[in-house]
Design a protein around this nucleic acid. Structure first.
Length: 970
RNA sequence: GCGUGGGUAGCCAAGCCCGGUCAAAGGCGAGGGACUCAAGAUCCCUUCCCGAAGGGGUUCCCAGGUUCGAAUCCUGGCCCACGCACCA
């Protein structure tokens, strides 16, 4: 059994060694330097409710690779990293630990927190102490090229950052980007608080949904109120449903008296209505009476329905049996139930006469989908809940997107359901026949076990992302950015249009107090949009600590930030206010001006539609155009061995585990190879295994002695040509953040070419070529495996650090198409011989190659010339070919060959045409006889096909054409 | 449903924008070989089907179309992943 520790042990020591060397020499600490071009990469700070896993690791590394690449291109590179503690999840999780909830306990244990430590996490502060430090450790162990002097945590625990967020919100408010309005939220009536996804026992992702309240006046002027999500079906109403066994209330709502259930009255009172209950009434007492249905303004009867969910809506339901399966089933039940009709003293004849009214045409459905689906699914009665739910979902979905109202829908005839729905609601509301009510889109249960309702809060602060003028500026920003991959552009444009106003403050959670309204805490996606600017000065404000204790930084005000970021106000004023030297303040201003804007911000695709787009909104609101972000990049969700990484699957892999198991360089290489673009990158353990072996082998290879030669062979030119091309391809891929492609060009393919080169050199590479190869390969790999690179670099006596070395450049003069063409010819000939051997199964004694005869070379050359000028005309080609001496004698052969050429070369590209004829095939094969004999283990002869003295027992020589010698095997 | 990205050999994946050099790179896996006392590592060969001469056949989700020529362009369809919000 191989002991993974044994060999990775070496790598681990190497990694630790160089990590401390980099730290000792402050290699990644970046300060403004007006004499050098800058590059500024960032990754959104991760949320500190646990150790970071490889998902964050991947997003981080994809930015870090770029930072390292830019560093090697000569840029002064800033790559900072902070830690996000704002918001609800830490509080929620801490509370759950305090309550000893097993699930939360298990999550911490799964991260490797020992049992005795877990209780400490009942205090939210403990999270904020443990995880930022741990994440920093993890990233350092991963070899992160980060300037840690600029790190910090968010929230008021870090006063200068808190001051920065207040400044940001003042600027947004001054710019008119903040407004206050009503807002429906999912709400726990017991806690008297909104319930975010993280605080729900059930119902993650459910949101407030608008119901239309339809008002049905009784003869006495009171209204029965029914809730529906299908106001467009009012034209098909036949009756009203009330549960005879339920209790309802009569409530004064505004100036009216409404009848609905008690729960609904409570909900409405949370939704901005004044509701006063006056009396109670049994459902049964309402039966048999008539009400006037809204929209159709017709009298319809109140009938008993037992299917009504009293927890949803008002407990009263309007009946549209044509399109609602529930209604049809209930109607059918009633029509067939004499006992019930008698019990409630209902007009049996009238009720039995009720027929569903067709109102919507939906492709694939008959005129009465409600009836149709009840029949199709074999629904027996209104108690058949499971099937009825299925039926509703099916009918509603197709009806909504495809349905069109038909001619008995008055002014809405011919209008699509999707559109009519809103128009009808608006019309009925304006006529006083309808109102609005919110319900959660699905059942939501609070952690306190209470079922949630929707509350309309009436003083919610919003960032007005819906503002068209603001959107337009964001579109401008998007248009001017570099996006990796390019497909992001469409996505960002779409999200920008789709965003509505964003509630930017809430009542709970960690965060900055809204500066003008102390009842609110700024919400965590809203405060984290321009903090990349904070990084540029963070080294001074933080004083090297995540929570600043720099005295003057505790007292920052808007004037300070106005000066540093806008250059407005006076440095002197700001300095004296803070008790500082003017130079310090001016220096900070210079840092900001130098580093901003961000050149690259990379993240997982989950942040596209919030953080990343918010970041653009905030920048366009606060900063001038020159300081808008220059580049965004996005990667997919990390998969482990082809499966999505998730806590429930138990295949979450933390950075610390990964590094412990494989070492940093292997993980880095595996992540780089996991895949580019928006597809989900796949972290492949098999690859990691072979990557480990490969880099160990590379270390060994690069640092050991080799048998070499001093003299130059033809193959040297070939390898140098390939080397230059690899460098070029690798650079291009790096620039486009296509790391998998970069590895392919700059590592795998290059290694394969080296193998071939060594084989062609009889195991003795040319000494300078070898040295060059090791140097280039080490540098091409350095962004991915910097520790290994550093080790090699130093063992070979390199100056400084390889991570600061110049990235290799291709040398145009070394690109040698002729050498490459010759090599292709040799390889393809070898492949041809092998194929013949494979197919025939013969064990050859002797191999003969016949290179193309002179006359074919001539004809080919003429054909190429003609092909460059346009379509090849056979008569012109023949005329010119036969003009050459000695051609007339073989006119027939020439004609056959010429005809074939005319076809073959017709569509060839220019550089392809030029490549032909650049190689003296005979000389090339002669030169490489030894190689061929060794490879094929057979005696090889090379003849010119037109050599009269050739050995050619089966007349193969005629088959030779340019780029393809004839082959004879005996 | 809308939006976005996809569907390529056993698996992962490149190619598609810019049609021909594509039976289609690379990696992994599998098989064979070299080296070795052996294991590992490394290197070489093979890996859609047929073939006793370098060839032929059938392929790039499906069905049509454009073209001398389609994995690539167009039309229609099927399928998959992610997102659809107040929150990280």
């Amino acid at each position: 059994m191989a002991k993974p520790g044994a060999r990775t042990g070496d790598l681990r020591q190497i990694e630790a060694k160089w990590q401390s060397a980099w730290e000792r020499d402050h290699v990644y600490v970046a300060r403004a330097d007006a004499g050098r071009p800058k590059w500024y990469s960032t990754v959104p700070y991760p949320y500190m409710n646990g150790y970071q896993h490889l998902g964050f690791g991947t997003s981080f590394l994809r930015a870090e690779f770029q930072s390292r690449f830019r560093r090697m291109l000569g840029y002064n590179v800033l790559h900072p990293q902070a830690f996000h503690c704002t918001g609800l999840p830490i509080l929620g999780a801490a509370k759950r630990i305090a309550e000893k909830e097993p699930k939360q306990w298990e999550i911490l244990r799964a991260m490797g927190i020992p049992d005795r430590e877990v209780p400490k996490f009942a205090d939210p502060m403990h999270w904020i102490e443990v995880f930022p430090a741990a994440t920093m450790e993890d990233l350092k162990a991963l070899g992160a090229a980060v300037d840690w002097t600029r790190s910090f945590i968010t929230t008021p625990l870090n006063p200068p950052y808190d001051a920065f967020v207040r400044w940001q919100f003042h600027r947004l408010k001054d710019g008119g980007y903040v407004r206050i309005d009503k807002h429906p939220v999912i709400w726990c009536p017991k806690d008297q608080a909104p319930i975010g996804d993280h605080d729900r026992l059930e119902g993650e992702g459910e949101t407030p949904m608008e119901y239309t309240l339809l008002k049905f006046p009784l003869a006495d002027g009171r209204f029965l109120v029914a809730a529906t999500i299908r106001p467009e079906t009012v034209f098909g109403q036949t009756n009203l449903w009330v549960d005879p066994d339920a209790e309802y209330v009569v409530a004064r709502v505004g100036d009216e008296r409404w009848i609905l259930n008690d729960l609904a009255s409570k909900k409405l009172s949370e939704q901005g209505k004044s509701v006063a209950i006056e009396s109670r009434i049994h459902g049964a007492d309402l039966l048999g009476k008539d009400v006037v249905a809204p929209a159709i303004n017709r009298a319809i009867p109140i009938l008993p329905g037992s299917f009504i969910d009293q927890g949803r809506g008002t407990g009263i339901v309007t009946s549209v049996p044509s399109d609602a399966p529930d209604d049809y089933a209930a109607l059918r039940d009633l029509q067939q139930d004499d006992r019930l009709l008698t019990k409630y003293d209902l007009d049996a004849e009238r009720i039995r006469a009720i027929r569903p009214i067709p109102i919507i045409r939906t492709p694939g459905w008959g005129p009465l989908p409600g009836v149709e689906i009840v029949d199709r699914l074999g629904i027996r009665n209104q108690g058949d809940r499971e099937k009825l739910e299925q039926a509703k979902a099916e009918v509603y979905k197709t009806g909504f997107y495809r349905g069109v109202l038909n001619e008995n829908c008055g002014p809405y005839a011919g209008v699509r359901v999707e559109v009519a729905k809103d128009e009808i609601r608006k019309e009925l509301t304006s006529k006083g026949q309808a109102d609005l009510m919110y319900e959660p889109s699905g059942v939501v249960i609070c952690r306190c076990m209470t079922t949630a309702i929707v509350k309309v809060v009436d003083n919610q602060w919003f960032l007005s992302y819906a503002d068209p003028a603001w959107k337009a500026r964001v579109h401008e920003a998007i248009a001017s950015m570099d996006l990796y991959p390019e497909a992001l552009r469409k996505w960002f444009d779409y999200v920008t249009d789709w965003l509505r106003d964003w509630p930017c403050a809430h009542h709970r959670g960690l965060g900055t107090i809204l500066p003008w309204d102390a009842n609110w805490v700024i919400e965590s996606l809203s405060d984290s949009t321009i903090y990349m600017a904070y990084y540029t000065i963070a080294h001074a404000l933080q004083g090297g600590a995540l929570r600043s204790s720099v005295p003057w930084a505790q007292r920052l005000d808007d004037g300070f930030f106005d000066f540093v970021f806008f250059g407005s106000g006076s440095a002197k004023g700001v300095a004296s206010h803070l008790g500082l030297e003017v130079e310090l303040i001016e220096g900070l201003r210079q840092e900001f001006v130098y580093w901003y804007p961000v050149d690259l911000r990379n993240t997982g695709k989950d942040l596209v539609q919030n953080h990343m787009t918010f970041c653009l909104f905030a920048h366009t609101a606060i900063f001038p155009r020159e300081q808008w972000p220059r580049g965004f990049a996005v990667n997919g969700w990390v998969r482990m061995a082809g499966r999505k990484m998730s806590k429930s699957r138990g295949n979450v892999w933390y950075i610390r585990e990964a590094v412990r198991e494989w070492g940093a360089d292997v993980i880095r290489l595996t992540v780089a190879n996991a895949g580019d673009g928006l597809d989900d990158p796949n972290v492949d353990m098999d690859f990691a295994e072979s990557a480990k072996a490969r880099i160990e082998e590379w270390l060994r290879f690069a640092t050991s002695k080799h048998a070499t030669r001093k003299d130059h062979h033809g193959i040297d030119a070939w390898f140098l040509s390939i080397l230059s091309r690899s460098i070029q391809a690798s650079r291009t891929a790096m620039e486009g953040m296509n790391y998998k492609a970069a590895l392919r060009h700059g590592y795998f393919d290059l290694q394969a070419s080296w193998s071939w080169y060594v084989r062609r050199s009889e195991g003795r590479p040319q000494v300078d070529v070898l040295r060059r190869f090791i140097d280039v390969q080490t540098k091409l790999l350095a962004p991915f495996v910097p520790h290994l690179g550093e080790e090699i670099w130093h063992r070979l006596g390199g100056d400084g650090f390889v991570v600061n070395a110049q990235y290799p450049e291709s040398i145009a003069g070394e690109i040698d198409p002729r050498a490459e063409t010759a090599e292709v010819l040799l390889q393809s000939t070898l492949a041809d011989v092998r194929e013949i051997l494979k197919v025939t199964g013969i064990a050859p004694k002797r191999l003969a190659l016949y290179t193309v005869p002179a006359w074919k070379v001539h004809v080919h050359r003429i054909a190429r010339e003609l092909a460059k000028q346009g379509p090849i005309l056979m008569n012109v080609l023949m005329e010119r070919a036969l003009a050459e001496p000695g051609m007339r004698e073989r006119a027939k052969e020439v004609a056959a060959f010429a005809k074939k050429l005319a076809e073959d070369l017709q569509h060839a590209k220019l550089d392809e045409l030029d490549r032909f004829g650049s190689v003296d095939e005979f000389a090339m094969f002669r030169e490489n006889l030894g190689f061929l004999e060794k490879e094929l283990r057979v005696k090889v002869d090379v003849f010119r096909a037109d050599d009269p003295k050739r050995w050619d027992p089966s007349k193969k020589a005629d088959h030779a054409v340019p780029g393809r010698p004839a082959i004879y095997l005996e």
